[in-house]
Write a protein that binds this DNA or RNA. Structure first.
Lengths: 125, 125, 125, 125
DNA sequence: GTGGTCTAGACCACG
DNA sequence: GTGGTCTAGACCACT
């Protein structure tokens, strides 16, 4: 389960990094619905992080509907991943719209943006 | 000097809002090089904000090279605005590159991004 | 004995679900006084649940007077069902009183409650 | 600010009691929009409870939209109380519908329920 | 063993 | 002073 990675020295809250890391892995299909996550304590030991911090991340993920926790049994990947993927896409579109407008105001040209796009989306698409 | 606006109810640090607000006004030409900024105390009174917070914003702006302070005389808009505009553009390009890559990963299509771009950059450009 | 149903994915303790499920079946007459319940081990196998959990539920049911266990012979539905029905009714009345008071505080009107009641208790009653 | 009360000896989580207590006071109008709540530390001291527990309650209240917290400044009652009141009413209606159906199944009579209702809603309403 | 709650004590950025 | 994050260590109910 080495897919979950956090940088303790970053200023970003560890629990937030955990949430994003697991969220991403679920959306990418690296973690499948129903699959059991490492226990709070074991993951804490593995990453040498306090169990409370892991707990906080798991609670947030459950609130987001990414996982669900059964006391005394463990934590598991939620079933409705497709819904999550959809809402994730929408969020990205909204952020992009905002960023692009800001770039436009800063005199970034249309050609420059298209250049970036071409370097990311392969031509044959 | 009503151009400097902050939202005390926002979660965002007030001093950060101040920095961005002044920065933006300089980039847009609302504040011209050499122009004198309101004093820490007068601006604090005007916005009913703690003077420490204004001071913190001015220090940060000076660090960024947007303004310069002459002890005993006041703070003034820096002369090298073009340099600022350049660094601002670069920053926007870097952020865009990151956001676009993330959107690509989230299965946002090239066509969708182009649609957003067309709605922002007028066609005849 | 497919009447006893539990949802392992529910957040609710499994033993609690078992207690309620059996309790309900007794009150509804699906399980008659004197009838023998499945053994701890057989039920555990049937529901693929830890025997300890079944045991815990049976102990609780015995404490409530719903069943009685004869060591070496098995567990049986208790005879005094009417007593159970009575206490069950009382519990419902108490809960209702509390809920209605809370609804009243939340500005739910008397008319609204009467509407719900009419939709549940058929008019000719 | 003695309106916020918790029972440390209850099995119910303290932070949950806090959430409900404050939520209720807001819905009742005892706490008005914009009003500042006691600080995490001061309330912790007042109730002789760990600050982390208060913090947990405040975070949950913010998630529910009941309050908002500004780091370094304090926590405040949210403005959109009417929306909250509406959703609170809806929730109560839903719960009532369920409870009344269960009572009906347990052979509670319509007359009995009406009796309870009359004791709660004053006749002249 | 599991997740959930709580205390005690600490550090940080912000005002 | 404020809220936000984190660690260390403990107890609980449930499986």
């Amino acid at each position: 389960m080495g897919v979950i990675a956090v940088d303790t020295r970053s200023r970003r809250p560890i629990y937030e990094q955990l949430v994003e890391s697991i969220r991403k892995n679920v959306l990418r299909g690296m973690l499948s619905p129903g699959e059991q996550l490492p226990s709070v304590r074991s993951l804490a030991g593995e990453l040498t992080i306090n169990p409370n911090t892991i707990q906080k991340a798991y609670v947030e993920l459950e609130r987001q509907g990414v996982i669900y926790s059964l006391p005394g049994r463990g934590s598991f990947i939620s079933e409705n991943v497709s819904v999550l993927a959809k809402s994730n896409r929408d969020k990205h579109m909204a952020v992009l719209r905002e960023q692009l407008a800001a770039a436009h105001e800063a005199n970034v040209t249309r050609a420059e943006v298209l250049g970036i796009i071409n370097s990311i989306w392969e031509e044959n698409q």
